[in-house]
Design a protein around this nucleic acid. Structure first.
Lengths: 229, 229
DNA sequence: CTGACTTTGTGCGCGCGTTCACAAGTGCGT
DNA sequence: ACGCACTTGTGAACGCGCGCACAAAGTCAG
């Protein structure tokens, strides 16, 4: 369960239940977005082929993914758009309307707070925190920034935390969140965090993504030079 | 090669050469960061066990990863920190000092431009573009924002593009980048982009990450309720 | 020089995820 | 009522990546 990477099961001991594969879970939000777009366009049903195209995946994969959360399609017809939206939302827990606490209101934090995609469906930022007294009291996206010292009071009933602080403070903030009862953390700080086993941790590292692209460019360039020689 | 997800090989036809696994490439930047930290701390050698701990991975995995880019360790001793930094940097193409063009200077774009992690080692933003005339001319992180119409002139010699625009404009911007010769794209807009086969595409989707955490919270909660019942 | 200790590099088995290909189910036209 | 066209759901094969466990290789003390 702990230290789950942006792409990896994690898993400790307990978990099975109805076992939806981690890889599938990671794609459900994409399907959901595509379905919303279709619904807004007035569509009521959609075939796996079409939806797969829209989501940028293989149609067989899509069907297998959906089959993991029950069979909600009709052979010969396809899937009912609004019904599928409901089922995926339920599976993702979006119908529970979890709140999120965001720590660190720098440029990235502001971007996240203002990010339409968050509030769009089911998830909403419930609190903003920062260590800088200058920022406390500021209004962002309809919320008032509070001081990090208020963290224990603020996170009552909130189980998801987002860390958008500098790397140096990330582990400390992480520990505070865990101590306050947060059990899922999304880390944007460029550091490896350690958390207790019962806490889910995901990371998004902007510079790593770029370095991976750099690698591919490097490889392409080396290949091209090799061909020239 | 096209439509590579944040976690998946991609692959079209050509590629082998010396074949470093995609999963390994994704971890190299993490090792690199840990190594820099060790070097700054004055360390000259490090064992796989130690470095693995620092990077949050299994030590066997670390050794296998490093073995993919040649054997640079000394049995009984460990790895030479600075030498390893050089080798990983070379493998990632960071010694080529690629420049990056960033399109979209909203909150997210600003965050990216100011992100220390970028410039840190080998990669630097070479140009900022935006469609909003209000923002053109503005100075951000030492660069002047230019208009998107200048894209063809600006990206000369730049092969990596970052898209931080709203979803609606992303595909259009993507096409412009590709037309201008960019062959690697990092997309932050919440949309599925399509690119020609020779272009590498990675995406970072903030809301998807949160929805995945929501799923895990949902599952934990359901499990707890199940135990109570 | 020898032997004990440390650490790397890797062969092997296992499980997950992807994909193909097809059987089974559904609606529509005649 | 019947068959045809369409689409789902899944069995099976394949390949990748992970982690264990160990042999090879090097260091250091005496």
């Amino acid at each position: 369960m702990s230290t789950a990477d942006a792409s990896g099961p994690s898993e400790g001991a307990a978990a099975p239940r109805r076992g939806v594969p981690e890889a599938t879970v990671a794609r459900l939000p994409v399907y959901l977005r595509a379905l919303h777009a279709l619904a807004d366009g007035g569509r009521t049903t959609v075939s796996s082929e079409e939806l797969a195209e829209e989501a940028g995946v293989n149609s067989a994969k899509l069907r297998k993914d959906l089959s993991h959360l029950g069979s909600y399609g009709t052979r010969g017809v396809g899937y009912d758009v609004s019904h599928l939206v409901g089922e995926i939302s339920r599976e993702l827990g979006l119908s529970r309307h979890f709140s999120v606490v965001l720590v660190g209101v720098g440029n990235l934090g502001r971007a996240l707070a203002g990010y339409g995609g968050f509030a769009t469906r089911g998830l909403a930022i419930g609190a903003l925190l920062d260590a800088d007294r200058e920022r406390v009291g500021e209004q962002i996206a309809g919320l008032t920034v509070r001081h990090i010292d208020d963290l224990p009071d603020v996170v009552t009933g909130i189980s998801i935390g987002v860390i958008a602080t500098p790397a140096a403070e990330a582990q400390q903030v992480c520990d505070l969140l865990v101590a306050a009862g947060v059990t899922s953390i999304l880390n944007f700080a460029p550091t490896v965090l350690s958390v207790p086993g019962h806490v889910d941790l995901r990371k998004v590292d902007l510079s790593i993504e770029l370095q991976i692209l750099s690698f591919h460019e490097h490889r392409k360039a080396a290949l091209a030079e090799g061909l020239l020689a």
